[in-house]
């Protein structure tokens, strides 16, 4: 892989056009732009998409925001759909029906609803079969398109419309599923977890590896949602930084079975710093809820230690 140069990558033509209808300040499209910048110029792509915010906003007839070929099929089958496209590519290449000197790459995007939950089987199948494609989850930790219902990616204690905080409820009961680790256990060539950092180097390098590593690859991108998380739209970069500095969202990759941390905070911040910024955790800061924050911290610590152990082998 070539060295990373922000100026060079920002010079590339946009592959996600403006005019899409995602909310102001949306994290998902920041992530999609970053992933698409990792495509080499001259390479074509077919983009897949699970139903969700991104789909209904980026291809509202007759307006497509995608400069490349694009296919949305349904909510739960982005993995299977793109595996069909990728197989067609191999079939048509084999039979001489496509020009030999033109390359296509296959990238599919799904929210955490379409990826962790309803599309989990389809994703698992596509990864296990080893299609030469990248599945990118833009994880905003709830079903945002239908109005902020909990998913298996939603963090514990989050206030969502199906885990509302009330007299008898502190928000979501369960902790979040660790999907990147689950896909890593499929033993695909490349899995990584990332989010937005100041210079976007981490997400760029991981995207490039995911796209240009032969075989199935998976990227899990933390993509904050200002409406669902309840913070000011302008604060997204601060929130992402707190997510990684508190180790709520560790940055790592699993490259051909080798687990590696790609970012280790100089000083691990307490989880309150991440939670305090978001309205969905407001109830945790009422007097008497200290034990809930302690419980959250304990889970973050346990997972972080577990990851450090995996990366030390």
């Amino acid at each position: 892989m070539a060295g990373y140069n922000l100026k060079e990558v920002m010079n590339k033509p946009e592959r996600l056009s403006a005019g899409h209808r995602m909310c102001a300040g949306c994290g998902a499209t920041i992530g999609i732009r970053a992933v698409l910048r990792a495509l080499h110029e001259g390479d074509h792509a077919v983009i897949g998409n699970a139903t969700g915010c991104l789909e209904v906003s980026s291809f509202m007839y007759p307006y497509t925001a995608w400069e490349d070929s694009y296919i949305h099929n349904a909510f739960e089958n982005a993995g299977a759909t793109l595996s069909g496209v990728e197989t067609a590519y191999r079939a048509l290449k084999k039979r001489g029906r496509l020009p030999e000197n033109e390359n296509f790459k296959f990238i599919t995007f799904g929210g955490d609803g379409g990826t962790y939950d309803i599309g989990f089987q389809s994703l698992s199948g596509a990864m296990e079969r080893g299609h030469d494609m990248v599945y990118v989850c833009y994880d905003n930790g709830a079903y945002m398109n239908t109005g902020i219902q909990r998913s298996s990616a939603t963090p514990q204690f989050a206030d969502t419309t199906t885990t509302p905080v009330g007299k008898m409820s502190n928000g979501k009961v369960q902790t979040r599923k660790d999907l990147a680790a689950i896909i890593a256990e499929h033993h695909v060539p490349y899995v990584a977890q990332t989010t937005f950092t100041k210079d976007f180097k981490d997400i760029h390098i991981k995207s490039e590896k995911a796209i240009y590593t032969e075989g199935a690859a998976f990227l899990n991108v933390l993509a904050p949602c200002p409406r669902g998380w309840r913070y000011e739209t302008s604060e997204i970069m601060k929130i992402c930084q707190l997510a990684i500095d508190t180790c709520y969202w560790p940055m790592f990759e699993v490259d051909h079975g080798n687990w590696r941390l790609t970012y280790e905070p100089k000083k691990k911040l307490p989880i309150e710093d991440f939670l305090r910024e978001q309205g969905r955790f407001k109830h945790l800061f009422k007097p008497g809820c200290e034990d809930l924050i302690a419980q959250f911290q304990e889970e973050v610590d346990r997972r972080w230690e577990d990851l450090l152990f995996r990366c030390s082998r």
Partner: peptide
Amino acid sequence: EFIPVESEHSSMSAAVGAEAAGA
């Protein structure tokens, strides 16, 4: 190219993808 999918939902989903792709 035979795809041994993990369900019938995926077999038709993959067929949709493949057919749209030109196969």
